[in-house]
């Protein structure tokens, strides 16, 4: 079994590579459409046609587009993304400092969403015999699912942040505090530094943005978990477990949940990719210094090297997440494995 799993992992990783290449072609081509003329912008108005040609040669802009792409790809493959025009810093460095913040946000968001969703699903399941439940919950879940992350973000800021002043809603940590960067994950860094005050402040700052992400995941999980629990408890082996004298709680925890939880896990996997994209706006609204804020700042300044690198980073993470989800799903569900 181990061997088959390893072979499947190898196969899926190999399939992700051409996708990443195709993604880079698309990003490169789209950003070439840009109406601004980079050469015209960087030359004085009295420049001659020879000056233009000279500069074009310098940047390689006189080559055919596919050669330009290959040159760019060769540099990107070696981790050389160029220098940001707007931030005046190495682009790879910018990505590496912001990406951990975004990953941290997504992970905490998934955690909150999963806890709330599983809790909600179990509660919906427990209320399954109430006559009012079905219609109200159905419409209610639709209503909750209609709220996109960035509107949750604004509603949370207005309620918990501004009106009740419970939680901070700007940045990643109290500006008066700081911890030495080791991993880039601020919660881990605060623990490594042994600073309780920084850990508390970072957690408080993370709560609202992660909650905004989690709230868009929770109703989906609750709905799917309830549906698969309802399917599972109708099975014969659950009846047998009841007849063998187990309490309802024991039946639920020992027999129904482990079998009903698979669709929920694949849902979390699929949604984590979407949630990663959703962080972009949430970060902008909470002024959270992650990849999304970097990308939007770069977009506003038309800072092409940063835009390209950030877009590539987003796609790389989505593909990596999909890969992890595939592997976990195959590892958990023997039915998906090919026969040896």
């Amino acid at each position: 079994m181990g061997l088959i799993l390893i072979r499947m992992i190898g196969y899926r990783s190999a399939a992700a590579l051409p996708l990443m290449l195709a993604v880079s072609v698309l990003i490169f081509l789209v950003l070439r459409l840009i109406p601004a003329d980079p050469i015209g912008l960087s030359l004085p108005p009295n420049a001659t046609a020879e000056d233009r040609a000279e500069l074009a040669r310098l940047f390689g802009l006189d080559l055919p587009i596919w050669q330009q792409y290959l040159r760019w790809l060769a540099r990107v493959a070696t981790g050389e993304f160029g220098t940001s025009i707007h931030f005046r810093r190495d682009v790879a460095d910018l990505i590496l400092t912001t990406l951990p913040a975004t990953l941290e946000l997504v992970l905490v968001g998934i955690l909150i969403g999963t806890l709330a969703g599983v809790g909600g699903g179990l509660w919906l399941f427990a209320e399954r015999n109430r006559p009012w439940a079905e219609g109200v919950l159905d419409t209610g879940a639709s209503a909750l699912m209609a709220v996109p992350e960035f509107l949750w973000a604004i509603l949370l800021i207005l309620s918990l942040g501004v009106a009740w002043r419970l939680l901070p809603f700007l940045g990643r940590i109290d500006p008066a505090l700081s911890v030495p960067v080791v991993t880039g994950f601020i919660l881990a860094d605060a623990m490594i530094a042994g600073r309780v005050d920084a850990l508390v402040s970072a957690l408080a700052h993370l709560t609202l943005p992660a909650l905004a992400l989690g709230l868009s995941l929770a109703p989906l999980i609750a709905r799917v978990l309830r549906a698969s629990l309802l399917d599972t408890v109708a099975e014969d082996y659950i009846q047998r477990a009841r007849l063998s004298g187990l309490s309802e709680r024991q039946v639920l925890i020992r027999h129904a949940l482990p079998n009903a939880v698979l669709p929920t896990i694949s849902l979390i996997g699929v949604q984590s990719g979407f949630m990663f994209g959703g962080t972009l706006l949430v970060e902008v609204i909470f002024a959270y210094p992650g990849l999304g804020n970097l990308m939007v700042d770069a977009v506003r300044a038309t800072d092409l090297p940063v835009i390209q690198a950030a877009a590539l980073a987003y796609c790389a993470v989505v593909l990596a997440l999909n890969l992890i989800v595939d592997i976990v799903t195959i590892a958990l569900n023997p039915k998906l494995r090919p026969a040896p």
Partner: peptide, 17 residues
């Protein structure tokens, strides 16, 4: 290929272009 993009990211770079 399109599904490898978060939709927001793709629409941002399209609008830049």
């Amino acid at each position: 290929v399109w599904m490898s993009f978060p939709p927001v990211v793709l629409s941002l770079i399209l609008m830049v272009a």
